[in-house]
């Protein structure tokens, strides 16, 4: 398959990249790992006149700890996330999502920002990131803004990113010691698989270790965007931990989900699986919270 023709730009700094994006406007697209963009260009779904490669901008490749927050550069790859000690310590569910994205070959290319900007409903990184309450930083010549990730997604392939903006980093407040999170992806294969359903769950316990102080449940592939389950979260917060509570939270999450029928699975099956996976992801989160 031949790629459509385009001009190639390779800025060395974020400022330079923003200048190019501002000059070229909608004719240009940022290129990160290319695992979505190059495929879409080969299939002639997209044919931007200019590609602005971000891979040589060193500032975008770091994972930094700063005053209790973790800052993940836009171009950090899924493989780097899955292997990072900073992520394993305290943000394990994100490492789990990154560690099962695509295949080992894809993970060495695919970046975290590319995964968010592509905004596929079944993507593996948005649910764990939303479960940790992540924010995204968007930069352009006009300035910089920080948004909660959950407001960023507008629909399949649609986000709040403006045409001249670059997503530069993801910020996560380091969860307290008494918190834990889990991520589960359900597919029919172990690799190279798009989720039928995926669920990320986060819980924080109070000082006694018995009552749930904070909870977030995020469902993927069951709505046009990754979806928080307000009913499940409401049911969990302030309650004492017991197995039937997670069962009920699973049922509530299933009610909040809005899956569709397609060749990969029926809506009914997906809804049932939301209940099961929510319960299991909550158990993973609890186990981790108690270990601390």
């Amino acid at each position: 398959m031949l790629l459509p023709k385009f001009d190639y730009h390779e800025p060395l700094s974020v400022d330079e990249a923003c200048q190019i994006m501002s000059d070229l406007g909608e004719k240009a697209k940022p290129l990160a790992g290319g695992t979505d963009l190059i495929v879409n260009m080969k299939k002639k779904i997209l044919s931007p006149e200019h590609l602005v490669a971000l891979s040589r901008i060193e500032d975008l490749r770091k994972i930094e700890l700063l005053n209790g927050s973790v800052r993940i550069g836009a171009c950090v790859t899924a493989a780097e996330l899955a292997e990072s000690q900073e992520i394993k310590r305290g943000l394990g569910a994100l490492g789990q999502g990154a560690g099962i994205l695509g295949s080992p070959l894809i993970r060495n290319l695919a970046t975290v920002a590319g995964n968010l900007v592509s905004a596929r409903p079944a993507a593996d990184l948005p649910p764990p990131l939303m479960a940790y309450g992540a924010e995204v930083v968007l930069k352009s010549r006009r300035g910089e803004r920080t948004l909660p990730l959950e407001t960023f997604f507008q629909g399949p392939g649609q986000t709040l990113l403006e045409i001249d903006e670059i997503l530069t980093e993801i910020i996560i407040q380091r969860p307290p010691e008494s918190a834990g999170a889990g991520y589960i992806k359900l597919g029919t294969r172990k690799a190279l698989e798009i989720s039928l359903v995926n669920v990320a769950a986060y819980v924080a316990l109070d000082s006694s270790g018995t009552t749930i102080e904070a909870a977030r449940v995020v469902l993927g592939a069951v709505a046009p965007t990754p979806l928080r389950s307000p009913s499940a979260e409401k049911l969990l917060i302030g309650e004492k931990v017991d197995p039937s509570l997670f069962e009920k939270a699973g049922q509530a999450a299933a009610k909040d989900s809005r899956p569709i029928d397609d060749f990969r699975g029926s809506a009914q099956y997906r809804r049932d699986m939301v209940a099961v996976l929510t319960r299991r992801a909550l158990n993973m989160a609890l186990e981790q919270a108690r270990r601390a």
């Binding site: 790992g33 695992t35 490669a53 070959l105 290319l109």
Partner: peptide, 8 residues
């Protein structure tokens, strides 16, 4: 290791 079909 990477997929060389996706790298320019």
């Amino acid at each position: 290791p990477v997929n060389s079909c996706l790298v320019l």
